[in-house]
Design a protein around this nucleic acid. Sequence first.
DNA 1: GTTGGCACTCAGTAGAGTGGAGTGCCAAAC
DNA 2: GTTTGGCACTCCACTCTACTGAGTGCCAAC
Lengths: 363, 363
Amino acid sequence: MPRAHNSSGPPRPSEELDGRRAAILDAVVAEYVETAQPVGSAAVARSAGVGVSPATVRAEMVALEREGYLTQPHTSAGRIPTDLGYRFFVDHLSEPGVLGPTQRSQVARFFSQVRGEMEEVLERTSALLAELTSHAAVVVGPSHDTARIVSAQVVRLASRVGLVIAVLDDGAVEKATVEFDDDLADESLSVASAALAERFVGLALREVRAEEPIGLDPLSASIVTRSLEAVASIAERREPEHVFIGGSSRIASSFDAVETVRSVLATLEQQLVVVHLLNDVLDSGLSVAIGGEHGYEPLASCAVIVAPIAIEGAPSGVVGILGPTRMNYPEAMAAAEVVSSKLSRRFASVRHGESDPDEPRRG
Amino acid sequence: MPRAHNSSGPPRPSEELDGRRAAILDAVVAEYVETAQPVGSAAVARSAGVGVSPATVRAEMVALEREGYLTQPHTSAGRIPTDLGYRFFVDHLSEPGVLGPTQRSQVARFFSQVRGEMEEVLERTSALLAELTSHAAVVVGPSHDTARIVSAQVVRLASRVGLVIAVLDDGAVEKATVEFDDDLADESLSVASAALAERFVGLALREVRAEEPIGLDPLSASIVTRSLEAVASIAERREPEHVFIGGSSRIASSFDAVETVRSVLATLEQQLVVVHLLNDVLDSGLSVAIGGEHGYEPLASCAVIVAPIAIEGAPSGVVGILGPTRMNYPEAMAAAEVVSSKLSRRFASVRHGESDPDEPRRG
DNA sequence: GTTGGCACTCAGTAGAGTGGAGTGCCAAAC
DNA sequence: GTTTGGCACTCCACTCTACTGAGTGCCAAC
C-alpha cells in the first residue's frame, strides 16, 4: 500500500529508512505512546530490537530528526515522533496488531448478546469500540441512498393530522407528519395509501418525485398530493446517515490543553463533518489519518482510524476511532478491523435471513 | 415556593437574611459569575444596591460566611458563593430573568424556521439551548408510555425477513425485524398485518401481550406469533425516551479541572442517568438543582436547570441546562423557560392540527 | 562504524524575596 | 450602636535565582 497523503513539509527522506533507523523509530513511538514523555537515547538503546549504544542511537536520532520523523521539544530533551514518524510506523507495521484476550472476549460477548434494530446495534457498538480502545469512537450506518421503498402509507394521528410512512428494504422507516385542511376520512386514507404504495414501492428515496395524482376524488387527491410532497421532502431533507458517537468523554483524558478538548468535542458535535471526515479518509485509501493528513484543522492533533463496513461487498458505513496522535495504533487498528468485520457479517446475515454465527439461534 | 432541598451542612441560617445581607450576597454572586474571581469587599461596596463602606461589607461577609452562604478560598482572598449561597440567590430572585434581544430573536427565528418530526425538532432545540446559554443542554421528549397504537403491520424486507411496524398516535414509529423459518407469502403477510392491526390498534405499547393467534392457517399463524412476540419485545425493551444533548463541548470551557470535565461528560453519555436526573429534579418541585442538591456525585460541581414540556397540561418531557454552579442563573432559567414553553405550544398545536403561531402557514 | 567520555544546554523545581489584594480588628465618627 | 477609615496582618501570586539532572552533541579512542 503506497503512502497516499501529500504532506508538504520541507524535510523529506531521500530514501526509505534502513532497518536500524526503523527500529529506533519504532522504539521511540512505542515508548512515547506508553509514557507520554520525550524518549531519550538511553531508553531506546535499552529497548529490544536495537542492539547499539546510546551514542549510536543519538547519531541516528539526529538523522531521523533531520528527515522529519522525530522532533525535539527543546534541546536536551528526548525525541517525540512527528506525524510523519507515526505515518512511517503505521505503514511499516510488521504484525497486523492483535487484541488482548480480554478485549477479544469482550467483543465476542457483545456480538453474541446484542439484539435489536440496526440503529441500536450501531449505537451500542460505538460504546463498545470506545471501551475497547479508550478513545472516542464513531459508527456510521449505511446510507439509505440505494435502499428501495417496500411499503408506503399514510395513517391518521388526529382528525386533520396524518403521518406518512415509508419503509425501506434496509429496515429503515422514514416518516413525515402532514397537516391537512380537512378531516381525514378512512376511505380517503386507504385510497391515498394505495396511491402512495403504487407510485413509490420499488423506488429509492431520491427517485421519489411529487407529481399530480390523477383520477381520484378531490379529497383523496389532496391527501395524496400532500403525502407525495411529504415523501419528497423526506428525500430532500436527505437525513444524512445516522452517526453514533461513543466515549466522547475520553477526549478529555487525551489532551492536556482544554482548548484542544473543546475544539475536538465541538467538531464531534457536527455530525455531518464527522461523516465527511471518515468518508474522506476512507476514500483516500487509508485506514489511518494522522494529524494534519485529513485536513480538518480542529483535529490536527488527532489521529483517525477508519474501517469500512461492507455488506455483501458494498460499502455500507464505517467505524472510526478518534484519539490523540499519540495512540496505540496497532491495537486501535485491530479493534476497528474486528468490530467492522463483525458488524459487516452481522448485517449481511440478517439481510439474508441467515442466522449470524455469533448469534446463538434462539429456540 | 418553599425551599425543598434538604442539605445537611452544619451551618444553617437561624433566620432569613435581612435586606442588606441579601444585597451583598447578590452582589457577590453577580460579580463572581462574571469574573470567576473571589470577590472582595471593595467590589461589593462599589456595586449598586449596597450603600455601605467596604468595612461594613466585610463585617457582613463574616456573618454570611458563618451562616454558610459564602466561603473563602484562603485568608486574605475574597469570597465565593457556596451552593447554599447560590440557592438563596435563586430562591430570592426579584425579577424572573429575561433574555437579551439577540437571544430572543434567535429563539423566534429558530421556532419559525424549524420543521420536521418531533425528534428532529428536539435535537435541534438542544443545540439552540446550548447556543443560547453557552452551556450543555438536554432535551427529553415525551415518554411513549401512554401513546396508543394507531397502525400495526408487518412487511417483507427479504424472503424470510420481515419488519413489524407499529405507529403510535404521538407520531412515533416503533419497529422490529423478525426472521422467519419459511419464505413469506404475500397473502400471509396481509393476514398477519390484519391480525396485528385488529389486536393492537388502540392499545398502548405496554398493554401489548403476545398471545396465540387462533383460526389462521399455519404459516400466517406463525408469522403472527413471531410478530406478536416482536411487538411485545419492543414494549419490553421499553426504549427510554429519546434524549438529545447539545453543546456538550461547552463543558470543557466550564471547568478548570480536566478530571471534572471528563466525569461530567461521562455522565452525560449515560442517557438514562441524565433522564433520571432531570426527572428527579423536576419531581422535587425545583427548577434548579445546585451542586450536591440532586445527589449525583459526578455532577457535584454542576448546576442543573430544568423546565417541563407540557402538552395540554400533561408533562411531556423536559428541557435541561447543565453548567457549572457558577452560572448566570436568571438568564439560563429564562432560556429554559422560554424554550420549553415554545416547545410545548409547538407540539400541542401540531397534535390539534392547528398551525403554530410561530410557524407561518405555508401556501 | 561504534562507543565511552565529557562539556554543554535547558526544562523543571525549589527557595527567597516582593507586591498587592484583601482581610480582621479597633478606635473614632456619626 | 452602627458605620467608617485606618492599620497591621496574612497569604497568594509572581519574579528571580540557583540548582539539579536528563539528555544532547561532539570527539577521540577502539
